[in-house]
Design a protein around this nucleic acid. Sequence first.
DNA 1: TCGGCAAGCCAC
DNA 2: AAACGTGGCTTGCCGA
Length: 401
Amino acid sequence: MPAVLAKMELNGIKVDVAQLSRLSSEFAQRMAQAEEEAFEAAGTHFNLGSPKQIGDIIFGEMGLPGGKKTKTGAWSTDASVLEELANAGHALPRALLTLRQFAKLKSTYSDALKTAINPDTGRVHTSFSLAATTTGRLSSSEPNLQNIPIRTEEGRLIREAFVAEKGHVLVAADYSQIELRLLAHIAGVDALKAAFKAGHDIHAMTASEMFGVPLDQMDPMTRRKAKAINFGIIYGISAFGLANNLGIKRDEAKAYIDSYFEKFPGIATYMDAMKETAREKGYIETVFGRRCHFPGIKDKNPAMRQFAERQAINAPIQGSAADIIRRAMARMDAALEKAGLKARMLLQVHDELVFECPQDEADRLIPLVQEVMGEAALPAVSLTVPLVVEAKAALTWGQAH
DNA sequence: TCGGCAAGCCAC
DNA sequence: AAACGTGGCTTGCCGA
């Protein structure tokens, strides 16, 4: 296994070539159909892959209500813009969304993964960079296996093409809500810590606190709003960003954020503390004391400074999570060997580890992995929230979730 | 033909 | 003035 200073290569993962080929054909057909519908709706032929031409047609010739502009001043034609127009009943934006979806899946995944197969091993070997991110996360490239689709039904088919060797299974083990748990620990938010200790649905609980809806009457939309806010908090939220994300007015977003800070006052204190630390020291620390530096925190440009402030809010959380899973990975091979397991660690996806093992080994592998990952902060740090690791074995990566 | 930027989009 | 964190890949487009 080649290993150089800044990169490491793990074992590689098997992909089902025939399945990828079937998907490429399927996606090509769906693209062709969407192209036909797009040209029909536009009443003219143009380059459907060119955002600029799309903008000219939709907002120029067709005169549909334009929304956002890109930073160069062109009409934005991104998914949120097209989605709004499609929902208003316009055929061209709907066709373009479909076309974009399948073009993405085909070019970036089903086609590219086939060419990434190493002929010697018959497997796909990514490269993990160890020092490429500001927070201490790994990154993955050539090919990137940390952004394999999962959120849509069609995209999930790509993940189903990652398979175990004959007689083996894949085991996916992921930390449940690790960043929110770390936020609760680092910021010392008792209400959040209590919820995690009790094993409650954290987004539902947040929604209940903020909107005064009893847990047993929680509706999906209210929970969704709370979920977006929870993520926003981790990212150094702004009313503008939340409004954009949820498709609501800025006033409404601001009211949500104010309400959140009122219910969980420890959060605002935490955010201010991180900004101040970054300003005074130039860096923040993860729970293990690893430092992340933010030179932009003193920039004369306010936008640069504010960006650095949001980074300083996010980095202790994201960085601590990166530390924890790295500690688990560092201990994993020895733990597997000690337990007499043949399992191999194949991939890391920020809060998830993927293993391959003989079929009859999975029942022993799963509790071991859960223990190593769950205890990974110890003995250096004793977290005040539990770390929960969900793990499942299956024949494909998609089914292991 | 090549490199780089912009736009867009996939993941956590 | 800008506007929610961390990445990588693909296409279109423009200039060398």
